[in-house]
Amino acid sequence: MSLVNEWAFIGVFVAVAWVLPALPLVVARIFQPRKPNAIKMQTYECGVETVGDTWVQFKVQYYIYGLIFLVFDIELIFLFPWAMAYNRLDFFAFGAGFLFIFLLADALIYAWRKNALEWA
């Protein structure tokens, strides 16, 4: 019962909260002048004209950070229930958590050694 109400609040919040930032945009739409021309609409690049396509290929390093983050993210999802229940568990839970985090740290050390954490 309470659970439903709490989430109903979040639901109404989502429905209402996006209107609030949209409101100034609508007001601005009404009051602002609109005189677009080709030069004004040009892509801004400090006065230089853009060369080629914007969606150029990017460094693979961004993707590697993304992958490492994903792995950590999922590990952390497992650790949240562990941390919640920790207060009523014994040393066995510590051992299990330690092993879990140790394996996680292992992966980090591997990434470090392979220079996957370097920006260059």
Binding site: F13, V14, A17, W18, L20, P21, A22, P24, L25, V27, A28, F31, Q32, P33, R34, K35, P36, A38, K40, M41, Q42, T43, Y44, T54
Partner: peptide, 28 residues
Amino acid sequence: ILKEDITPAGADRVIYNAAPIVAMLSVL
């Protein structure tokens, strides 16, 4: 509010306009 806002040529209009709202929603 009184400023003209410029949508650059070649911009993806829907996503371009939705982005500031999503950004604010994520904090609100």
